[in-house]
């Protein structure tokens, strides 16, 4: 390409590129009004005491008192906080492993693949929201699980527990087994979108890579670790981020409910926001660690 042609093309490009602002303008406005400003306010709120008055609200600066009260005065925050982090450290890897595995299952050619995919993605529609919430906290559901409709379905914990006691296993072990098994339906129902992401990733791996590998005489195991896994690292990052984002509004997020209760009924909004900030800091640092581990080893096929 000649210098002359390039120059005129560049200005044309530049002119064209400024049109991009028109497309993103709605987000810039919304970001400033409905995200950045409230976000900044939440920092101020966490350092203040909030008083609702007739005209609006008053803020009194109190420094780090809210953080102090959250951590050391409120007896329940720290255990709930650590419990939530711990359950996230267990559930996120479980979701990732399961959804990767499910995507591998759904990826091959087999009869009924269409139906299997329709069912596997169903949690995308059903997994979120009120129905699950009502089931989770519904006293009726608990009764029904213990005996009634849920019985004999294979996922009720009570029968299994009895069986394990019959086998004279140590109580601690029984608890671990039952908790893990009872967690499986949860993991499956939280994996819909992650399966979708992995599956689309698997399908974007070109077949010639595998063929070349087969020519060299690689086994299925080697093909997985040499081709599939490295090329899936971007999807792994996407899914870690998504799973964490998803947990913010999950019905079983004890910490979020605790913060909500503190903010709107307990120690006041300032303390609630301070708690949110600590939660966000913990999640932010966890994401940073994930990025540091996988980000450097990410392979892109362009």
């Amino acid at each position: 390409m000649g210098t002359k042609g390039r120059k005129s093309r560049l200005t044309l490009r530049q002119k064209r590129n400024s049109a991009g602002y028109v497309f993103v303008l709605p987000f810039i406005i919304g970001f400033a009004l409905f995200f950045l400003w409230p976000f900044a306010q939440s920092i101020i709120f966490s350092l203040s005491e909030l008083e609702i008055t007739r005209e609006g609200y008053d803020l009194h600066f109190v420094g780090f008192t809210n953080y102090y009260r959250a951590l050391f005065v409120n007896a329940n925050f720290l255990p709930t906080f650590l419990g939530q982090i711990q359950s996230m450290l267990i559930s996120v890897p479980s979701i990732l492993i399961f959804s990767f595995f499910a995507a591998l299952l759904l990826n091959g050619e087999f009869k009924g693949r269409w139906l299997a995919r329709v069912i596997f993605f169903l949690p995308v529609v059903m997994g979120a929201g009120i129905v699950l919430q009502l089931e989770k906290f519904d006293y009726m559901y608990d009764i029904l699980r213990a005996g009634g409709f849920g019985r004999g379905a294979g996922i009720g914990g009570a029968d299994l527990k009895l069986l394990l006691y019959e086998l004279k296993l140590p109580v601690v072990l029984i608890e671990v087994i039952v908790t893990a098994l009872e967690g499986i339906p949860d993991i499956i129902r939280k994996s819909g979108i992650q399966i979708l992401v992995f599956l689309s990733g698997l399908q974007s791996i070109p077949a010639y890579l595998y063929e070349a590998c087969e020519m060299e005489g690689a086994t299925g195991w080697e093909k997985f670790w040499l081709i599939t896994f490295p090329l899936m690292t971007p999807m792994i990052i996407t899914n870690v981020v998504y799973s964490i984002v998803d947990s913010f509004t999950a019905v079983d997020n004890e910490l979020v409910r605790f913060i909500h209760k503190t903010a709107f009924g307990g120690m006041g909004y300032g303390v609630g926001v301070a708690m949110s900030w600590m939660y966000f800091a913990a999640i932010g640092s966890m994401l940073a660690v994930v990025m540091a581990i996988f980000g450097r080893r990410t392979y892109y096929l362009d």
């Binding site: 409230p38 306010q41 939440s42 984002v245 609630g272 949110s276 966000f280 999640i283």
Partner: peptide, 11 residues
């Protein structure tokens, strides 16, 4: 995305 929606909720 990564900021919990609860955090900006009250402001």
């Amino acid at each position: 995305l990564i900021v919990p929606p609860q955090m900006v909720a009250l402001p």
